[in-house]
Simulated assay, not measured.
Amino acid sequence: MHRRVLLAAPALLALPAHAQPWSPDRPIRILVPYTPGAINDTLARLIGEKMGDALGQLGVVENRPGASGSLAIAATAQAAPDGTTMVVANTANLTMNPFLFANTGYDPQKDLTPLATCARVMNALVVPANSPYRTLAELVAAAKANPGKLSYASSGAGSSPHLAAELFRHRTGTDMAHVPYRGSAPGLADLIAGRLDFSIDNLPNTLPHVEGGRLRALGVTGSERDPTMPGVPTFQEAGFPGYEVYVWFGFVGPARLPAPIRDRLADAIIRIANGAETAERIRRAGATVWTRNPAEFAVLIGEELRKWGTVIRAANLRIE
């Protein structure tokens, strides 16, 4: 008996090493596809600063803007699959850019490993405060009666607000004129001045103007009403079933990331995002905590690629 225990000892001693969960051996680099101040950047910093408690290593944020976010995503795709490089991507980066640009430098389903989503924001369709349109149905009726005459602003060709409006146009069978701007602020300024008919923009961008009485919200693009504008119906409530648009944000790593590393990172991101302090700070940034695990995130990417691919091809959009 004593001899058998001694013979088994090496194997018993080896078990803890194999049973230990993966831990990074150096700080985790979190790439951000945009400049500081963007919501991707805010989320990267909120999650990164808590990684020391969750994983034993801090998340170090590195802003790498350019090519509508594609530079940071491509750099992540090319990184070693060791768990020390990830990027905070959004809907546009992963499911719109592949159809808009000839070469983004990555395939979102082949070159990346989905880890976890952490937040999302819905959009609101807004019109000037003195607009004659008080419902989505009235706006659509006017667009059908006057093809090509109604105009809408966006934060740029191929941006998520632009494509949200294209999806609306596609679903309603209307012809409306797109007026792209360099960012949301100048487009909303012209909308407030009455130079345009409407815009579908991220709720954090439109809410201050709605609350200030400068714009009127006709609908929100979420699956349910937003608590900041409880009197504004969803598109589905307003008679447009199946129209739902969120801009979501999630962490992805390079392809071939080993499952133990993937799962440990995903668990840390989800637990940090759902923590009371981080969740409140995400809410103050204008977003809602919304977490999905690696398998659910992969399904989401596939569904959104199909949806936005259809919209972009139908609109014949291409950015050189």
Rank of each mutant, 00 (worst) to 15 (best):
T104L: 00
Y106T: 06
Y106D: 03
Y106G: 05
D107V: 05
D107P: 08
P108Y: 01
P108F: 00
P108L: 00
P108N: 05
Q109P: 03
K110E: 11
D111V: 03
L112T: 01
L112C: 06
T113M: 04
T113L: 02
T113Q: 09
L115E: 04
A116R: 08
A116W: 04
A116C: 07
T117L: 09
T117A: 07
R120E: 05
R120S: 09
V121C: 11
A124S: 10
L125Y: 07
L125A: 15
L125C: 15
V126L: 00
V126C: 03
V127N: 03
P128Q: 05
A129S: 13
N130G: 13
N130S: 15
N130K: 14
S131M: 02
P132L: 02
Y133G: 07
R134C: 09
T135D: 06
L136I: 09
A137S: 15
L139A: 12
V140F: 04
V140L: 06
V140K: 06
A142M: 06
A142Y: 04
A142S: 11
A142K: 08
A142F: 05
A143Y: 04
K144D: 10
K144R: 15
K144Y: 08
A145C: 08
A145K: 11
A145I: 05
N146C: 11
P147L: 01
G148C: 02
G148W: 01
G148Y: 02
S151A: 14
Y152V: 09
Y152E: 06
S154C: 10
G156R: 07
G156V: 00
G156K: 06
G158W: 00
G158M: 01
S159D: 04
P161G: 03
P161V: 00
P161E: 01
P161W: 00
L163D: 00
L163R: 01
A164E: 01
A164Q: 03
A164T: 07
E166W: 05
L167N: 13
F168T: 08
F168L: 09
R169H: 10
R169N: 14
H170Y: 11
H170S: 14
H170P: 10
R171V: 11
R171H: 09
R171G: 10
T172S: 14
T172I: 09
T172A: 13
T174L: 06
T174N: 09
T174M: 08
T174Q: 08
D175K: 10
D175T: 15
D175I: 12
D175N: 13
M176V: 15
A177H: 12
A177L: 13
H178Q: 14
V179L: 11
V179T: 13
Y181R: 11
G183I: 01
G187E: 00
G187C: 04
G187K: 01
L188N: 00
